[in-house]
Computed example of a mutant assay.
Amino acid sequence: MDTIEWGGVRVTRIGLFENAPLPPAAFFPATDRARWEANRSWLAPAHWDPDADRVRIAVQAWLLRSAGRTVLVDTGLAADSARTGVHPGGVSLVEALAAAGVAADDVDTVVNTHLHADHVGGNTRFDSSAGERVPAFPRARYLFSRADLDFFDSRTLTEQPGRSAVVHAESIEPVLRAGQADVWEGGHVIDEHLHLEPAPGHTPGHAVLSLTAGGERALFVGDLLHSPLQVLTPEVSSCFCHDPATAARTRRRVLEQAADERALLVPAHFGGARAVEVAREGSRFALTGWAGFPAGAA
């Protein structure tokens, strides 16, 4: 397992799988192909397959051991082939956590940075004795933003209503029924090192998890960044952003914060070394270093 420590908080990457779903022009509608070619030397192969012209991403979760708590950040796609938004390979998050020495009962808090299928799929499991889906982590409190809960309410949602309704019914509603959800607005403190901040645009309730410990800082930024090229072009949003203009403004704000506070950025889907340091270059930004997670397959 890939584990590093920041200021006494242990962070383990729980890899599920990697793929190359779309070409840059489809993934980032406002992208400039020349920019990809100009940065080929470091984008390939971890973040871009230039031969196939496909953006490479990872689906992974982050396990944090902080202040005596076990915190899971995002839960990936479902590993149940009967569900919408299924990851290949059939390895569940619970199985991947077990390989890291963590049982489902050990998890105290589940943070969903937002409520897209590839961030909530491991929230639940099918209980054959009950004949229904139940929370996969029976002791955990699940943190949902009010804005995303309202937006993805299957009774009112108009964007991808069929797909999103299945995701909501199977990954969100069982947690609500079990009384394990904590719904937050404006911000949420998890412990002395971890707190959630609104970062809207990708979804209305998208959040950033801030880690501050021992003089070190990291920002788990979810889908604020899908490619490190967006550090150089923060105005470019992905095709999956519900509000691209707001996402771009939020991206710039968080990049400014990361540069000014020397905070490491930990996006949900980066391959390679997984996390990056940034700095200001006038009104733009530059990548100045990578985190210590080993590069490689999921």
Rank of each mutant, 00 (worst) to 15 (best):
T3D: 11
I4M: 14
R13P: 05
N19Y: 13
L22D: 15
P29T: 03
R35H: 11
W36A: 02
E37P: 04
R40F: 02
W42F: 08
A44W: 05
A44N: 01
D51W: 09
D53Y: 06
V55M: 10
R56M: 08
I57L: 12
I57Y: 07
V59T: 09
A61D: 09
L64E: 03
S66P: 01
R69M: 14
T70D: 05
V71R: 02
A78K: 12
G85Y: 07
H87Y: 12
G90K: 14
A99D: 14
A99G: 12
G101V: 04
V107I: 08
N112D: 12
N112H: 12
A117H: 13
H119S: 10
T124F: 04
R125V: 11
D127A: 01
S129Q: 14
E132T: 09
R133Y: 07
V134L: 00
F137T: 01
Y142R: 11
F151P: 02
F151V: 00
F151D: 05
T156C: 05
T158P: 03
Q160P: 08
Q160D: 15
H168F: 15
A169F: 13
S171P: 10
Q180L: 13
V189T: 08
L194P: 04
E197Q: 07
G201I: 03
T203V: 01
A213L: 01
L229W: 04
T233Y: 10
P234A: 09
E235S: 12
C239T: 00
A245V: 00
E261H: 03
A263W: 06
L265E: 01
V266H: 00
V266G: 03
P267A: 05
A268R: 13
F270K: 07
G271D: 11
R274G: 05
A279D: 15
G289H: 06
G292T: 05
P294A: 13
G296I: 00
